[in-house]
Design a protein around this nucleic acid. Structure first.
Lengths: 367, 367
DNA sequence: CGTTTCCATGGAAACGATTCCACGGGATGC
DNA sequence: GCATCCCGTGGAATCGTTTCCATGGAAACG
């Protein structure tokens, strides 16, 4: 770790450090000769400016922080990817942190991002406005929330309107004759967990389905709780005939346990997941999902953050969600009144043909 | 962004900055009274030390960099997670970068990590030893390679022994009567791409299977190329009866295109993927995989990096891989000589859906 | 030709922390 | 009771860079 400093460059180039600095940071007040020799010297020594020192003096770092709540959740992995690409295009490098759905870790990362003086932060927040989130606001560090919000904290955000998609899903299940829908909810400490649960509650009431509180299992947005949720719901005296999972990892956990119990998805039980993940369409039966655009969310979040950094105060954006019906929920409930009843007129938002076509519907052997 | 510095804390506490610094960094040479008042002042002002300034003076930052080649690849997402947890346990915070399988992005991230003076770097390298990797070595920045290596660059690494798993997979397919295995390879510019391809070539020769070079498609480890690969392989005059994908995203791409073409995995064509991803077992048929432990890889990588930071020179570690047989490859090739291993010279071209017997095993119909 | 303007340059201050060094006073040793 | 040691403390140097300010020489102008 032998350090090569700007002094070495200046010495080799035969100029002062001030001139070397000017050349290296592209100040116009330099002569061609100085420029040439400094550039040559820097290249020859493979000089890398010390970002700490640079950031200490000037107050921007050309970097942003992105703190997601779980990298292993494909939704956030995709989000990380799009945010990073968008930021790169704008000349910023993205430091990615993983809160792992834990408040202490979120606080810890937030602290390091703050003390590393990133120019701005894109955050999928967790918990309430206490702890490091409060500091973030007080310090007026440019921040935008993504996917989630925090009550009482006034920060521009990009979120999804869960209401529409969930309403469509419930409507669709009701039309297929389901009256008892099991809901695997996210935690109520997270805005998306609350919003989606509220939307579900309203939809169930609206379509006259069972409001039995036992039909709701509160998970933590991670896979294991999806398994536990299915387990609990299927043990009920009157188990649900359809399941709705509030995010994709919980859906994965749900599918795993359904397999293990020998339940056939799409026949013995319908399943719909919030979040559209590439390979959900590859499952057999393909999984019906409530889809929303990660790419757009990431792109807009970066755009908004740049606005905040530039001193603006952008309006929050709410992106739409929509139901995509595939085979996991396409079949009417066996023996249900629904097949003959009025709800048959319900027309779902969108059906992607390739996933419910006879080709995909052909029988595949299962192990 | 009003800055609260240690000066403010010292002033409020009524001590000098030197004393404040000592208290805040836990130096023993402080009096209880000083400690109390400084801590109180810091809390009251919500003081966060400026990491830049701190790192400028002391030469360590308590942070490591982790540069993965593709966050959206679940293998790397999992790796990121385990590395991050292991590092956190050791008191380091992890800055995650995503090279997106592109050398320029890798160089760019490496540069920023270097100039931010991380204490060490865990890198899944890309390309040859040129560019920023060279700088890394020259500067003697503690580094360990993970998953991949770079020829001619002497850095401790944690990798997987692809040979065993791939040999098992080929043996297994040969035993099932397959003679033409299509291989969807990774790029030859990446060590794992080369190693796995070489292992495949050797295994195919060893078991007397077709060495037709047309049976190999060179992809780029990303999903789209898996689709292209399947497409190309199935268009051959003599298409393969089994497919082996060198990583999981390409396997996903492969599955998608197989579905679209109406090919039934496990019956019309066998499929095995390198990398075990949680939900591969949830597919129907469940996917046979060559498995290796991400958790261990991440844990060991961090342990080795800490050793290097501490001045040691740990030995490189090679982790085992093993075949896990599931339904996607479990069925013997119809009309083949059988599972005894003697590969008969049955023309694979004769295999088409019509000839596949309704099958042993509990065949489940799908909706 | 003399004065002003311009501009590349170097010296030095500043950023916010850590840390070396010197100092003073209380406790200790003889 | 005097010299020594220890220890908490403050002043100041330091890390590597940017940037303000002064300088001096060349160009431009009258």
């Amino acid at each position: 770790m032998v350090a090569i400093t700007i002094k070495d460059v200046a010495a080799l180039a035969g100029v002062s450090v001030a001139t070397a600095s000017r050349v290296l940071s592209g100040s116009p007040a330099t002569s061609p000769e100085a420029r040439a020799s400094v550039v040559a010297a820097a290249a020859r020594l493979d000089y890398r400016p010390n970002a700490q020192a640079r950031a200490l003096r000037s107050t921007h770092t050309e970097s942003i922080g992105l703190l997601v709540s779980d990298v292993r959740n494909p939704f956030f992995a995709d989000l990380a990817h799009t945010v990073e690409q968008a930021a790169l295009a704008a000349g910023y490098v993205t430091l990615l942190g993983n809160a792992n759905e834990r408040k202490e870790q979120q606080d810890r990362y937030l602290d390091t991002l703050i003390s590393r003086r990133v120019d701005g932060i894109v955050l999928a927040p967790l918990g309430d406005g206490s702890g490091s989130i409060r500091s973030l606001i007080q310090r007026k560090i440019p921040t935008v929330f993504v996917d989630r919000t925090v009550d009482g904290v006034d920060v521009p955000s990009v979120t999804t309107d869960s209401e529409t998609g969930i309403r469509q899903a419930v409507e669709h299940l009701a039309a297929a004759g389901h009256t008892r829908i099991g809901y695997i909810s996210g935690p109520q400490a997270i805005s998306t967990g609350r919003d989606r649960f509220a939307a579900f509650t309203r939809a169930v009431a609206e379509f006259g389905l069972s409001q039995d509180p036992e039909l709701v299992y509160f998970g933590d947005f991670q896979a294991a709780s999806g398994s536990l949720g299915v387990h609990a719901l299927l043990e009920l005296r009157q188990p649900p005939t359809a399941l709705l999972a509030a995010d994709s990892p919980m859906a994965v956990g749900a599918i795993a346990i359904l397999h293990k119990r020998g339940m056939r998805i799409g026949r013995d039980v319908a399943l719909i997941a919030f979040d559209d993940i590439e390979w959900f369409a590859l499952l057999d039966p393909a999984l019906s999902v409530i889809s929303h655009s990660v790419e757009e969310m990431g792109r807009i979040a970066v755009k908004m953050l740049l606005e905040v950094i530039g001193g603006g105060t952008p309006e929050s954006v709410v992106l739409p969600s929509e139901l995509i019906i595939r085979a996991s929920s396409a079949m009417p409930l066996a023996g249900a009144a629904g097949a003959t009843g009025a709800p048959a007129s319900v027309s779902p938002a969108s059906v992607s043909p390739e996933f419910v076509s006879p080709a995909a519907g052909q029988s595949l052997r299962k192990n």
